[in-house]
Every structure is written in structure tokens, then in C-alpha cells.
Write a protein that binds this DNA or RNA. Structure first.
Lengths: 233, 233
DNA sequence: CGAAACATTGACACGCTTCAACAGTGGTGG
DNA sequence: CCACCACTGTTGAAGCGTGTCAATGTTTCG
């Protein structure tokens, strides 16, 4: 809701639709898989609380995390006819998610405002993925890590989390490494560097940012791709 | 059209819509930028002929290629309200593209068949991007390169190019390296390895596959994510 | 013919991975 | 309440894959 504020003003009929997205609800414990690679699903999922994770596995056991969805994110908007999900989708923590039938999602687009919000959400997810690819393909481990931390902080801020100094982040070093295309061991050393540079401290479940500007400068972070939409009225 | 065959049977009204996508047409010479990062655009683009390229630039001059769109691909389906494109979109060769107003694209979804085709196209692009991220994040240079070559071959096959033995590919080593997150120099060595293993030969503008199965095995290539939709009738 | 873009090669440096070991931490059952 | 265990995090040493720098070859095209 926080995330969608900028789309207002909302009509009552719109709000009804948005509420309907949350009508069903599924409570999850950590590491419960909602969707596995090649699974098919008639639902998308709105994350209501908790941290989730989208990833792909390799035959050799390797893992590439695509994204860490947080509350307000919608996951799994695939083609209805396509058989398989391209990724696994599971909980990282206790979490609540709302399955949304894809047919309902399609129908909801009859509201111009809702359609616009969904379009924006999809566009933003694609932009995040593109930036992620740049991160992994073309930035050093240090910069890459700083970038991910900043992106995460900003995404949290957009859903109302105070991130100015420190915030909860249940992503452990293995998972973070698998998002960054690094080994957990090397990530550990990178995190030490960031700590010793007095930029940011990552502890289990918790991130403390000591020097926001310094981090931004190191990461050459340009936040536009995460920006909420301009109020169009 | 070739790509969309599986969506049939098409009604005449559907075909009219598809034809309308190609009504305008813009002819391009190599390395003409259609869209730059942070540009805004009211159009998406249907590639009619030629090879295109989507990429992001870094302040230090680095470049990460996101995709090489080929005929039949639709690029730039962003949120109408969002100000900026997350990537640059330019021609690699002589090319023809059809700008499609996003409003027209939205309107076209009133046809169930067209809407379905567009949904599938978007889902597929996302799947390609996800696989690309896995490639760059978690596979060795050799495997990664093999994978990109196979993906490219298959995408060409889906639009009717005979790819069984050899095919044209105007992507030079610099661009290919920037797609793979490698330096052009190292890619050159990797290509030599692939050639000496008698798997594939990449020459300027041309790729010859000597051993399709060997390549697939090396790349651990799973083609499902590129698959055309199941005929649903 | 000459110039520009592209491809190729060698030597060397460095970032990241690998393997191995150990320390901290939280949860569980005896 | 404590002992134990699983999970997570931390550190060191060594090796390898990829990047960097510099030079040369090759192709294309005006």
C-alpha cells in the first residue's frame, strides 16, 4: 500500500480490487518452497510479510539468486499457458503470502489505476533484474556487494522501513553470495573490507549502515531504477 | 509470425491487429541508438529485420549487454508513466523496426489471442534474462560462452533460420564479451578452446556449429525456457 | 593503397575460488 | 541447566581463471 501511494488518488472500486488481492493468505515457515523450477501455477503471489527468495539451481549444485522479494512485491506473473516457472520461489523467513489467480490479475486490469500499478511493478522488476545483471557481469565483488546492500535498503525504505541507520535483513552470507555470484567465503572477506572501511556492518539478521554517502559513492549507485512513479495527476 | 504460429488459430481480427503493429517502419543503419538510458518513450519496438542490442553503460566505460533482440522480438514495453528506459537500445546491423505506441499495444490486448501472445513474449524475455543472470553469475567462461551460442542458435531457429550447421551472427567479440561479462581478450581465448575442442567456430559474422550435442552437454543447456507455447486448442 | 575495425597472441598480475580448519551462536533434549 | 549439535561466520594458504598491458596480424572497405 505504501508502495502504491504515489499512484493515487485511488477510487473505492480500485481499493476493493487491491483488497481482493489479499483475500486469500498462506502462512509460511522458513524455507518453504511455493514454486519450484518447471512447476506450473495458476497463481501469482503477493508478499504480505517476511522475506522471500527467487533462485535457479544448477546441476552441479550451484545456485543463482534472482531476487529477494519483500512485502509489497508480486512474484510469478507468468504466461498462463506456459508450463513451467523459470525459477524456484521460497520463503527465507516466516512469511505471509497471498496467492492471486492470474485470471483475477488479468481481470483487475479493467481498472486503469490498477493496470497502471501492475505495469509499473512489472517494469520495475525487470529494471531490477537488468541492474542485477550489470552488477554481476561488470562490477567488482566489493562494489557489487555495496550495490546490493544499497538496493535492498532503498527497497525497504519504499515500503516504510526506517533504514537511515540500521535495519533487519535475514539474508545470510551464503544466500547473499549466491545473489552476487560469489562464494560465501569471498563475500565474507568483502564484508570485512566494507566494515573496516567503516561503510557498513553486516551481522546475522541485521545490517548497519555507517556511511550512506560513502557507500553510494563506492557503488556508483543510481537509484532511479527503483524510484516510485511520478504522480501523474 | 513464425514465432507466433503456435498461438493459432488466428482470427482475422487478430491478424489485423498484428499487421497494425508493423504499419510504421523505421530503417536503421548499424549502431543507431533508438533509445538511450533514461530516455522516455511512448513506443515499444518490434524488430522486423536485422540484429539489435540492449545494453547498460557504466561510468567507467564498461558495458553490459542485456540481450540481442532479433526479428520477432518486442523491446521497450515499459511502464508508460515511468520516465526512463533502464537500457540503451541500438542497432548492430542494418535493421528495420516498427515503433508501436504503448497505447496501441495496450488496446490490442482486447483480443484474447493477441493478449496471450504478448504475455508469452514478456514472460519469455524475463526467462531469458534470468537465464542470462545465471550464466554470468554461476558458470565458467567456457560454459557460459557455449550457452550463449546455443541460446542464440535456438532463438534463430524459432524464427525460421536454418541453424543446423551454420548461421550468420553479426555479433563481434567485443559485444559478445560484454554480454558474457568477460573481456574481449579472454573471450577470444575461450572461442579458441571451443574451436580446438571441435565444438563450434566463431568467425566474424558467422558461426559454425560442429557438434551440437557436444555443445549442449558442455553448456548443460536446457532449452525449455525458450520453448514456444503449447498449442492450447 | 591506406586506414580503421576486429581478431589474436604472450607475459604477467590480481581477484576470486578452493580446501581445510576452527570459532561463535542459538536451539534442543537429557 | 547444561551438553551437544547444526548452522553460520571467520581465517589462512595455495592455485587457477580471468583481467591487464602491449604488440602484431587480419579483414574490410573507402
Amino acid at each position: 500500500m505504501q508502495k502504491l501511494e504515489a499512484f493515487g488518488p485511488w477510487k473505492n472500486s480500485d481499493l476493493e480490487i487491491l483488497t481482493s488481492f489479499g483475500s486469500r493468505r498462506r502462512r509460511l515457515t522458513p524455507h518453504q518452497a511455493i514454486l519450484r523450477e518447471h512447476d506450473s501455477s495458476e497463481d501469482a503471489y503477493l508478499v504480505q510479510s517476511g522475506w522471500m527468495c527467487m533462485y535457479k539451481l544448477l546441476p552441479d549444485g550451484g545456485r543463482q539468486v534472482l531476487n529477494f522479494p519483500i512485502p509489497g512485491d508480486i512474484v510469478g506473473v507468468h504466461d498462463v499457458d506456459s508450463i513451467d516457472s523459470p525459477f524456484t520461489f521460497e520463503s527465507l523467513t516466516d512469511a505471509d503470502i497471498s496467492p492471486i489467480p492470474l485470471s483475477l490479475l488479468e481481470g483487475a486490469k479493467s481498472s486503469v489505476n490498477v493496470a497502471r500499478a501492475l505495469r509499473w511493478s512489472a517494469a520495475r522488476d525487470a529494471a531490477i533484474m537488468a541492474e542485477h545483471l550489470v552488477n554481476v557481469g561488470r562490477r567488482s565483488a566489493l562494489v557489487r556487494t555495496a550495490h546490493l546492500i544499497l538496493e535492498t535498503a532503498l527497497r525497504l525504505r519504499h515500503i516504510g522501513v526506517d533504514v537511515s541507520h540500521e535495519f533487519d535483513c535475514p539474508v545470510n552470507q551464503s544466500w547473499m553470495a549466491d545473489a552476487l555470484g560469489l562464494t560465501a567465503i569471498h563475500l565474507n572477506r568483502v564484508l570485512r573490507e566494507l566494515r573496516e572501511a567503516e561503510l557498513v556492518t553486516v551481522r546475522t539478521g541485521h545490517i548497519t549502515i555507517h556511511d550512506f554517502d560513502g557507500l553510494k559513492e563506492l557503488a556508483v549507485f543510481e537509484p532511479e531504477y527503483l524510484a516510485p512513479p511520478k504522480r501523474s495527476s
